[in-house]
Computed example of a mutant assay.
Amino acid sequence: MKRHFYFVAGWLSLALGAIGAVLPLLPTVPFVILAAFCFARSSPRLEAWLVNHPTFGPHIVAWREKGAISRKGKIAATLAFAFSIVLAVIFAPWPWMMAPVVAAAVTGSWIWTRPEG
């Protein structure tokens, strides 16, 4: 039963990562890392596919070995946060426009304190 839970959670994480590739506030790589974690407990074949993926594999390995996020990833996250904040300021009413600001402050500060890999 636990294996099925991890399998479904891995696919949901991978789907959220795919959605994050086109939505500015939703990150991609953390969901792919989570998917690899879930697949390690449910499907070694899918885990190996993610770990060996040319785009996502290095991020997964860096996270597993050092808890590291690449500088490029940190900059991409910061730019995505900035874009989301601009959209919220333009389109969202007060106080909802502050949601991306708070998310950027909390998550961005955590991201920038991780080692670089």
Rank of each mutant, 00 (worst) to 15 (best):
R114C: 13
I60H: 01
S13C: 13
E47N: 05
P93V: 11
W63R: 00
V106G: 12
W112V: 07
W49M: 08
W110V: 14
L26K: 09
S109C: 14
P115W: 02
W63Y: 10
A80F: 12
P95V: 05
V51H: 00
A80Y: 07
A82R: 09
F83W: 14
L16T: 10
A21E: 01
A99P: 07
M1H: 10
E65Y: 00
L79W: 13
P24Q: 04
G17S: 04
L12Q: 03
L25C: 03
L87Q: 14
R41Q: 11
G73C: 09
W63P: 05
C38Q: 03
A62Y: 02
R45A: 11
I19N: 03
A36I: 00
G73N: 10
P100V: 12
A18Q: 04
S109L: 12
V29Y: 00
A92Q: 12
F5H: 04
S84G: 15
I69Q: 05
L34G: 14
T107A: 14
R71C: 08
F91M: 10
V32A: 02
W94V: 15
A103Q: 08
A48V: 00
V22W: 12
S109T: 15
H53Y: 00
M98C: 14
G117I: 11
T113D: 06
P93W: 13
P44C: 03
Y6V: 00
T55G: 01
A103P: 04
F31V: 01
A105H: 08
V89M: 15
K72H: 12
R45I: 05
A103N: 06
I69N: 04
K2N: 11
N52F: 01
L79S: 13
E116W: 10
A21Q: 02
N52D: 05
M98A: 15
A9W: 02
H59D: 07
G108M: 06
F5R: 06
L34K: 01
W112P: 13
V51F: 00
G67W: 12
V61G: 01
A104C: 10
I85H: 13
P30W: 03
S70V: 05
L14Y: 09
V29T: 13
F7K: 00
P58S: 05
R3D: 03
S109K: 09
S70H: 13
W11S: 07
P93A: 13
A48C: 02
I69G: 08
